[in-house]
Nucleic acid binder design. Structure first.
Lengths: 123, 123
DNA sequence: CACGAACAATTACGCGTGTAAACATCAAAT
DNA sequence: ATTTGATGTTTACACGCGTAATTGTTCGTG
């Protein structure tokens, strides 16, 4: 089962640093999300059920560690979008952003560099 | 309100050709999705409610036309992903696929061409 | 040892979604 | 005019999600 958007917010905290307690997660996410303690606990429990995090008892509380890596998550999400909208091919996606003028100077420079590296690797 | 994945399947049919009747939509989508007539009707009604399609009476049935364009939809979806996962920047996204070896030769060629065109446009 | 504070687990609830059955309508055929 | 077939509309229902209140558990302290 896929992890939801709210759950991803929690994962994000754990990806930045782990292990963490529920309280620490709330502290980091609270301001932006205005969540209650209970909300974070629920999300953590759902993530546990989905095997996306691991919980280790530490005295009276738990320390949570991600099992699903950010790479894996990003992979799933972006592959999904790519397949659904761009026939699984990357170039049309970039072309789309290009048409929308969403490529910054920096993007362009980095893309150029990336292609250069692929080129170097090649020979 | 955003349009859901099942709804997007229906939109896809209409984006390929419109206007269409519910029956035609089912015929095109049925094999792949194994949906019943009622399912398609429900989806069409929800799309109507969301103002994503328009229905025009034609005798005893309706002809459905998309109001939301594919461009708009792709725009929303991909911007969402980009913002959530790559800080809104395109280059990191491409880098991601590159690391995953998901760039085909064709992708690379097309990206190169794209950058070339951006370059030409510049001067 | 009993109690309260700190945590976690369970339960709840409204909403959107996927899927469809049930119901309504209306034109065509008998 | 009545029935029937084609269509659309309404209602349904289980499930995941966002959000949280409620309940359970356990440790430290009086």
């Amino acid at each position: 089962m896929a992890i939801s958007e709210a759950e991803a917010v929690v994962m994000d905290v754990l990806w930045r640093e782990a292990p963490r307690t529920a309280e620490e997660i709330l502290a980091e996410v609270g301001p932006a999300q205005a969540w209650q303690e209970g909300t974070v606990k629920s999300l953590l429990n759902r993530l546990l059920k989905k095997k996306a995090v691991h919980a280790e008892r530490d005295g009276r509380r738990y320390l949570y560690t991600p099992l699903l890596t950010r790479e894996q998550y990003v992979q799933q999400e972006s592959k999904g979008l790519l397949d659904r909208l761009f026939g699984g091919r990357v170039a049309p996606l970039v072309a789309h952003f290009s048409e929308q003028r969403k490529l910054s100077k920096k993007d362009i420079a980095e893309l150029r560099k990336l292609l250069q590296e692929l080129d170097d690797e090649q020979r």
